[in-house]
Amino acid sequence: MAITVQGVSKRFGDFQALDKVSIEVEDGSLTSILGPSGSGKSTLLRVVSGLEHPDQGRVLIFGEDMTHLPPQKRGVGFVFQHYAAFKHMTVWENVAFGLKVRRRPKREIQTKVAELLELVQLGGLAERYPGQLSGGQRQRMGLARALAVEPKVLLLDEPFGALDARVRQELRTWLRRLHDEVHVTTVLVTHDQEEAMEISDCVVVMNHGRIEQSGEPRRLYDHPDSEFVMSFLGYANRIGDSLVRPHDIRIHLQPGADALAATVRRVVFLGFEVRAELEIPEGQTVRVQLTRSQAAELSLAPGQTIYVDLAHSRRFPEEREAAA
């Protein structure tokens, strides 16, 4: 295992940021830690990097106990949400920093920095200051800076959180490609489920300082262990005590066994996808997702009465009991 976290707890005053968290990150994987704000995901990453010290528990990197080592000695790369660019240094100096404090020979620094700047596509901007770069460029510089010291693991704390949607999407795809090239074990913290699902080999879902579930993105999406995981990974309609995703609802024009009568309230055409809002007898609104051809077949229109089949809905009874 590249990273092993065993029973780590961390408290800030009255706030329990981490509550006996244990995870394992496989060598060479790209793992996302996904959760809402305040779930403890960033704290977990900071504990792994050594920027925070856990009250309890151990952190191992490639089998070596790092719990009591300062960040300087852990050999990790860290990328910050707000870039943490060294404002008084050029792009080149920023990337070279880790090598300089390690007193590497000048020749080696030159080659290594040039190579990394090419890798993150900043070759022509080496002499610029961070203030003269766009957000996306700054973050690529941050990544090159972290990679320069050849870290054993790369930790990214909401790396795209401060960027606008389009740049975010670009960098996300680019990061996945980069990971496939470089193969360094990477842990990414995010609150964006789409980001996590799109680029990770493994997703760890956190809530209230605990791990809710972890595994391959597809498995988490299809087989959520809890109501929280299901609703956090994508929209889910709640009907009675079961949850169902909009695209898992089948619509029929004729009544059938286990089908619920509903009235169409609104139909929105979004290119390939068609979204409809239905009202079921209890007065509840249900969102449905269809393909264009499915919608055409049903010729959905507001006011129409249809029948919905909720066979793919899920219940999380244990949790309900636990809550009661």
Binding site: P70, P71, V76, H82, A84, F97
Partner: peptide, 28 residues
């Protein structure tokens, strides 16, 4: 920005190096 100092620490800079290379130039 405390991030800058944390970034320097993760990159291997000790307290003195952080002060000299990160804090001092920004206070300059």
């Amino acid at each position: 920005d405390r991030d800058m100092e944390e970034a320097a620490a993760v990159l291997g800079a000790g307290s003195l190096a952080i002060f000299r290379r990160i804090v001092l130039p920004n206070l300059g």
